[in-house]
Design a protein around this nucleic acid. Structure first.
Length: 860
RNA sequence: GCCCGGGUGGCGAAAUGGUAAACGCAGGGGACUUAAAAUCCCCCGGGGCAACCCUUGCGGGUUCGAGUCCCGCCCCGGGCACCA
């Protein structure tokens, strides 16, 4: 029997046996509870996995393995987010076809996942670019269309000139394309949208019902951006009958509204601009059209605008105020027009200062201080506000909204920042949109029984720069007949963005081979919602928002009986690798945020040491700092890799790859083998009966106490994602058993300990657990064993350490029988030498006794 | 600027308001070995010969007792950022 951890000698053998036995095939016994553990749907990139990705997969696997042993029916599937931009771009640069390429890469991912013993049910493997899958993506598109939630329209959308496609708002980060970092441009194109805005309120409200990281919930709330305000009309003085609506959240400040601003695109601008001002206004509008999104968003940009020559009447003060056009007002939020209150709004203040407009303070802070303007807090009362003066801000808001409503001039109104989800992409590699454009019938959905609309297999699929998908150039695809009138018609040639495919895959896993429907409602009802969803935090407002939206649509359609797909969400921390950089040379410049030029490990070796510095960076192929699972397993073993990643730090924390620390995991597993081999000869498989009749000494009872406390600790820690302390508890357990083994251990007690140890180790280091299990003469797999149960009666030791304090300072401790009387403990404390020494001549004021814990003597 | 997380030994970290630093890494000393590796044993926050004293970013507070709770700051990481 081996006395140390030699992974090469047994790990691959167990993986083979697991596969042969179909160990991870989903079980659906009636009468058992279900558990659905899911990892984010990955795009299998050609770079393959790094040990960094395993921080996602290993913890979910540990949890699913424990749940299996606890008797749950566990669904733990994996599949491939194969459609979309990343796959297509990679295929273009490799001059190959995306379909076969992704399948090849997926096989690599699959092999690497298996290599570290992740227990996926591969019978349920999905590929979103497979017609048997995207047929149902199209089906759900049509469901949205039927329900009025998909529409086709002209909108100035975000266009990425490098990827040559439009992007959803969620895919634009600070004015840059989230994939390639190119500044996006506005381009007006006919686009497909999903009406996610209709679900805005539900998407906010239901966040309260799910167990997600607070940060992610907050990002979603911010992204949806609810704001409560009032919408009301302003009359244009020079044009009787002409009026415009403004939206404001601060109607209480309306007496300080000294001008109004219209967005450059506002339709009224043309009507009201005076001939005198027209040249200037037209020039301004022309200029603002030329501005890119990035320029318009640039922070600290000076506010600009021009006077239209027209005035509006402030409905509260009845005073005329000038109307400006300015690009700091956006046409697609609120009404595209605002009332400007420079005294109480920073943007309006900046504008007023620049154009020398009156600034009238109408809110007095409740602190009583004279505020520096702009004063934007709502903690105050109204002044110089006619009949409304003296009201507190909150009360004024309510009252003034009611008055506007009564006059028929306006109403309370809720606005959301969220925009509809732009789904069409002018790219080849995506799910075709199942729509036909007919000259007589217009937009016609492809009948559901004619799905899927197959993506043609072509050799040339490079994106065009025309705003049309390359599919538009493929006649066999485009030309079709209208499903309604049978006349000549053209297919929609845009494809769906990748996020459509990943918005429902978790349903498909419940019923992956269904040829008649996207899924069987009963199966989804059984497995869903997902009990634990694990992935990186970068999808906070993309995938996670879209998936929630689709789930609600399916709920409304009566297809699923719940509103939220992911009951529990957890984000794993990143794994960083030490990466070499050098100082820039002459004529080299650094981009902002860069500290140096990233170099290869070879270059780092070749350069003199003082020219190289090391920083922690995410593992990526381009940085050359990747450790692959293959390398990790070859060097240290799969179980050591698992133990290391679980133990290094809390699950959600970023960690730094360290060979030395992985060696710590190797040592732990080696000590495990050593101890197991020492105990093996005296192991008694019938310890359960023997332990009942045995006469146990205190050391024996303490050993059992540790065994049962460790069961409790592991069960709780794994369930609550505290894998680092779970591993630490196993190390303590091992040390405890080793110490006990050195004395004259009771055979039954040590047999119980080692057997329990092996089973508790199973989710964390499954190869090792199964190997030891077999060495102990057992049949089958540890995954098929029952998870140990802690015996409550054994959790408490019969003696406890009582801490003795004088005035809150620890002065010693005593051993006392558990459950000793308070008065008894008090006496023991007062008689203790150290305590008496520190109390000295002082009078004892009182004594605090915490049973089984501590005695604190309070003295003068 | 706003909103979330975090600041504890040389390092990663642990701690239901109850002995701060469990568990591990690195380091030091020793055993075994011809030697090295591996392994095993001991030490390992700071000060002090000791009794003891000090120590969880900083300053206050609550409490018999605070890393933990409350108030006010400082620093680091992440997200959002003209949304009226």
């Amino acid at each position: 029997m081996p006395t140390r951890y030699e992974p090469d000698s047994f790990e691959s053998r167990w993986r083979q046996r697991w596969a042969d036995a179909g160990l991870f095939r989903t079980r659906q016994d009636p009468g058992r509870q279900k558990f659905y553990g899911l990892d984010f749907f990955p795009y299998p990139s050609g770079a393959g996995l790094s040990v960094g990705h395993l921080r996602n997969y290993i913890p979910t696997d540990v949890l699913c393995r424990m749940k299996t042993m606890q008797g749950f029916n566990v669904l733990h599937p994996m599949g491939w987010d194969a459609f979309g931009l990343p796959a297509e771009n990679e295929a273009i640069s490799r001059q190959t076809k995306p379909g076969p390429m992704v399948r090849e890469y997926a096989d690599v991912y699959k092999r690497q996942m298996n290599l570290v013993g992740i227990g996926y049910d591969w019978d349920r493997e999905l590929n979103s670019s497979d017609p048997s899958y995207y047929r149902w993506t199209q089906w759900i598109f049509l469901l949205l269309y039927e329900r009025g939630l998909a529409y086709h329209g002209d909108y100035p959308a975000n266009w990425c000139p490098v990827d040559k496609t439009v992007l959803a708002n969620e895919e634009v980060e600070g004015g840059l394309c989230w994939r390639c970092g190119t500044p996006v441009e506005k381009k007006v194109l006919k686009q497909w949208f999903f009406r996610i805005t209709e679900y805005a309120q539900r998407l906010i409200d239901d966040l309260d019902t799910i167990d997600w990281p607070e940060g992610i919930k907050m990002m979603q709330r911010n992204w949806i951006g609810r704001s409560d305000g009032v919408e009301f009309d302003w009359d244009v003085i020079e044009h009787p009958g002409a009026k415009f609506r403004v939206f404001t959240t601060r109607i209480d400040t309306v007496y300080g509204a000294t001008f109004c601003v219209l967005a450059p695109e506002h339709p009224l601008v043309q009507t009201i601009t005076t001939p005198q001002q027209k040249p200037e206004v037209d020039a301004y509008i022309a200029r603002s059209k030329l501005l890119s999104e990035t320029d318009r968003l640039a922070t600290g940009r000076e506010k600009t605008g021009v006077f239209t020559g027209a005035h509006a009447q402030n409905p509260f003060t009845k005073q005329p105020v000038p109307i400006f056009v300015a690009d700091y007002v956006l046409m697609d939020y609120g009404t595209g027009a605002i009332m400007a209150v420079p005294a109480h709004d920073e943007r309006d203040y900046d504008f007023a200062v620049r154009y020398d407009l009156p600034i009238v303070q109408v809110i007095k802070p409740s602190s009583g201080e004279t505020p520096t303007l702009p004063f934007t807090l709502e903690d105050g009362e109204l002044v110089s506000s006619g009949a409304h003066s003296g009201l507190r801000c909150a009360d004024a808001k309510k009252k003034m909204a009611q008055e506007l409503q009564a006059e028929g001039r306006g109403a309370s109104r809720v606005n959301y920042r969220l925009r509809d989800w732009l789904i069409s992409r002018q790219r080849y590699w995506g799910c075709p949109i199942p729509i036909v454009h007919c000259e007589t019938c217009g937009i016609v959905p492809v009948p559901k029984d004619e799905l899927p609309v197959l993506l043609p297999d072509v050799d040339h699929y490079q994106p065009t720069n025309t705003g049309e998908s390359p599919l538009a150039g493929i006649e066999q695809f485009v030309l079709t007949s209208c499903p309604k009138c049978k006349g000549v018609a053209k297919r929609e040639t845009d494809t769906m963005g990748g996020f459509a495919c990943s918005s429902w895959y978790f349903f498909r896993f419940c019923d992956p081979h269904n040829a008649h429907a996207p899924f069987d409602s009963n199966l989804v009802k059984y497995w869903m919602p997902v009990d634990c969803y694990v992935g990186g935090a970068e999808h906070a407002v993309m995938h996670l928002l879209y998936a929630r939206f689709w789930t609600k649509v399916l709920f409304d359609a009566g297809m699923v009986p719940f509103n939220e797909p992911f009951q529990v969400l957890r984000n794993q921390g990143a794994l960083l690798a030490s990466t070499p950089y050098r100082k820039p040379r002459e004529n080299e410049t650094l981009k902002t945020g860069e500290e140096g030029i990233q170099i290869s490990f070879e270059e780092a070796k070749a350069l003199p040491a003082d020219q190289v510095f090391w920083r922690w960076a995410r593992m990526s192929k381009s940085k050359g700092n990747v450790v692959t699972p293959d390398e990790g397993v070859a060097r240290y073993g799969a179980d050591a890799l698992r133990v290391y990643e679980l133990f290094e730090a809390p699950f959600e924390q970023t960690i730094q790859w360290s060979d030395e620390r992985v060696m710590g995991a190797v040592r732990f597993l080696s000590r495990t083998f050593k101890l197991a081999s020492e105990i093996r000869p005296s192991y008694d498989p019938d310890w359960r009966t023997a332990v009942q009749s045995a006469k146990l000494e205190k050391a024996d009872r303490d050993m059992r106490c540790l065994t049962h406390n460790t069961i409790l600790k592991l069960t709780d820690d794994i369930a609550s994602f505290k894998f680092n302390t779970a591993v630490a508890a196993m190390m303590e357990f091992l040390n405890g058993i080793a110490d006990y083994a050195k004395r004259s251990p009771n055979t039954a007690v040590i047999s119980e300990a080692i057997e329990t140890f092996i089973l508790l180790l199973s989710p964390i280091a499954p190869h090792t657990a199964d190997e030891l299990w077999e060495m102990f003469g057992k049949e089958g797999f540890t995954l098929r064993q029952e998870w140990p149960a802690a015996d409550d009666a054994l959790l408490r030791s019969d003696t406890v350490t009582i801490v003795l304090q004088v005035n809150g300072k620890t002065r010693g401790n005593i051993e006392a029988p558990a459950g000793a009387e308070r008065t008894h403990l008090e006496q023991l404390a007062l008689n203790h030498e150290k305590v008496r020494q520190h109390v000295g001549q002082s009078a004892v004021k009182k004594v605090i006794v915490v049973p089984d814990k501590l005695v604190n003597v309070v003295a003068e």
